[in-house]
């Protein structure tokens, strides 16, 4: 065993293997789900609108109708490609947030009070960005 430091100190008990396994699973599942939604919806939209202009790609607020739960639900129910594109973006953004939530669970379970508080604060800031700051500066 190599020691990269001159003074050895006892290590904290490492996070359990299940923490690493679950985070890996969250990353892979989130990425694959998001890409499937994004590509499937994009191909469907292009099939439905073969002569569409690229103007839609440079417009702001293009998924605004799907930013509310009601709007998203209605769009998904009616098969609107824009709703599925929006869902793909949501999943992609939610993936690392879910990873932070996974960390919070394991720090709490391991009675690492400070780390649990720090992780909770990070989670709260991420939610604040989506629910408060973004809509405020829109």
């Amino acid at each position: 065993m190599s020691l990269a430091t001159p003074t050895a100190a006892p290590l904290l008990r490492p996070l359990p293997d299940s923490a690493y396994r679950r985070m890996t699973l969250v990353l892979r599942a989130g990425l694959l789900t998001a890409l499937a939604l994004l590509l499937g919806a994009l191909v469907t939209y292009l099939g439905q609108h073969p002569g569409a202009s690229s103007g839609v790609a440079t417009a702001t607020g293009s998924i605004a109708p799907y930013l509310s739960l009601g709007g998203l639900g209605h769009g998904l129910a009616t098969g609107a490609p824009g709703a599925y594109l929006a869902l793909g973006v949501f999943v992609l953004i939610a993936t690392p947030i879910l990873r932070v939530a996974t960390g919070l669970y394991y720090f709490h379970r391991g009675h690492e009070r400070t780390m649990a508080l720090v992780t909770f604060a990070v989670l709260a800031l991420l939610v604040l960005g989506v629910l408060v700051i973004g809509p405020w500066i829109r």
């Binding site: 790609a57 998924i63 930013l67 953004i93 960005g129 973004g134 809509p135 500066i137 829109r138």
Partner: peptide, 11 residues
Amino acid sequence: GVLLAAGYINP
């Protein structure tokens, strides 16, 4: 997250 809620993520 901020850019999405502000309408600047274009899928």
